[in-house]
């Protein structure tokens, strides 16, 4: 759709926040990908004589209570945040699209059962509670963490997709496809999905912010990635006891989480604004 296409120059002109967000996310992704080369030191290297140092040379962000370099841990933490955040959004999105499309396209009793019973059941619990319960049941580990957050987060995508599919299903070009003898698969994959993808992408961008925050929360609670893996959330947890005498332990990971969440929010907002206003009304935004 060339007329409604996302124009980067248009976004840049009207929304410098989004450009800043993109630049920051780019930075985080680079950190995540090239952590072993970018980090000045081994993030797990314990150096007790050098513990709790303020930012200085050679530790630009200081050291934590075990003498580990905070900057290196921040860079490796970006890896966890991007990996977990990205995986959670990707899997939630996929699961949400499959369930939402199935419910929305089938309609009738199938839709009523899936929507009212299954989806509303998940929606009635706070996502983080589901995630906590799951990890408590299955134990720590990055796989379990991702599964836990997906379990708590997939319904948001399913609900959006279901609504979009219900609306698009009534459109005449979908009727036309069915009238030609197109199978349900063909109709959903080739006609409905491409026409509903834009609001779903916006939701995914904003969902990244939520996923990063959720991972940090879980790690803060001790239910995320186990030590010595560096995660911004676990760094916040470790720094709690030194809040007053060594605030840099908490400050840097907090700023990192904040910047990551903000950048994805800015990107999501810009994507939403770049959509045709008519499409915005259809989505109900």
């Amino acid at each position: 759709m060339s007329r409604r296409a996302l124009s980067l120059t248009r976004i840049a002109r009207h929304n410098w926040l989004a450009v800043a967000g993109l630049a920051l996310v780019g930075g985080f992704v680079v950190c995540a990908l090239f952590a072993p080369w970018l980090a000045p030191q081994d993030p797990a290297h314990i150096d007790l004589p050098a513990r709790l140092q303020s930012p200085s040379w050679p530790h630009w962000c200081g050291t934590d209570e075990l003498g580990r370099d905070i900057l290196s841990r921040l860079i490796y933490g970006a890896r966890i945040s991007m990996l977990v955040g990205g995986s959670v959004v990707a899997v939630s999105l996929l699961l949400g699209m499959v369930v939402g499309s199935f419910a929305g396209y089938s309609g009738g009793r199938v839709d009523r059962v899936v929507n009212i019973i299954v989806m509303n059941a998940f929606l009635s619990f706070p996502g983080i509670l589901i995630a906590i319960a799951f990890v408590a049941f299955r134990g720590p580990g990055i796989g379990n963490l991702i599964a836990a957050l997906v379990l708590g987060g997939w319904v948001g995508y399913a609900r959006l997709v279901r609504g979009q599919v219900l609306a698009t299903r009534e459109k005449e070009f979908v009727e036309a496809a069915r009238g030609m003898g197109a199978s349900g698969w063909r109709v959903v994959l080739r006609h409905i999905t491409p026409n509903i993808i834009q609001p779903v992408i916006v939701q995914a961008a904003i969902g990244m912010a939520g996923a990063i925050l959720a991972e940090a929360t879980m790690s803060f609670l001790g239910l995320g990635v186990p030590p010595p893996t560096a995660s911004w959330g676990s760094m916040l947890n470790d720094g709690r006891s030194h809040l007053l005498d060594a605030p840099h332990l908490v400050l840097f990971p907090a700023v990192a989480v904040m910047l990551a969440v903000l950048s994805f929010n800015f990107i999501g907002d810009a994507l939403r604004d770049a959509l045709d206003p008519r499409a915005r009304m259809e989505v109900g935004l």
């Binding site: 070009f173 496809a177 009238g179 003898g181």
Partner: peptide, 23 residues
């Protein structure tokens, strides 16, 4: 059988703007 029969019966819609997939 229905799918095969559909070859022989087609429909033209009222709305020229809604009956073609914009993508």
């Amino acid at each position: 059988e229905l799918r095969r029969l559909r070859r022989h019966m087609q429909i033209i819609f009222q709305d020229p703007f809604g009956s073609l997939d914009p993508r």
